[in-house]
Amino acid sequence: MSKSHENHIVPVSTYLTIFTILIVMTGVTLWVAFHDFGIWNTPVAMLIASFKATLVLLFFMHLKYSPRLMTIVFFSSAYMLALLILIVMADITTRTIPAVSSVGM
């Protein structure tokens, strides 16, 4: 592992900038929720949440200043989760599900 990562201290100003962006993006999350994008409602909300999460990962959790290995390891789990949800969604959106009343709901 490279020596360039040694003793890197992220300045307070960076933390404050990221904090401000996160608070502003929370406002954006709320603002877009008032708009109807049809089937894109959840993807839009998740896109904003992912952007916020990426900022937290890169700066608060120091991924930007850490060996690339940490990023690869962490995103392997995000990748597996994406696979899980995508395959489940691909399944249920393409099969015929019995009407709600017939399964006793």
């Binding site: 929370t26 929720a33 909300a45 998740m46 999460a53 937290v56 959790m61």
Partner: peptide, 20 residues
């Protein structure tokens, strides 16, 4: 920070579905 990230995803998924 990870606990914070989970909440970042939970908030729109749980609270904001009915706003529009």
């Amino acid at each position: 920070h990870f606990v914070d990230i989970i909440w970042i995803f939970l908030f729109p998924l749980l609270y904001l579905l009915g706003l529009h």
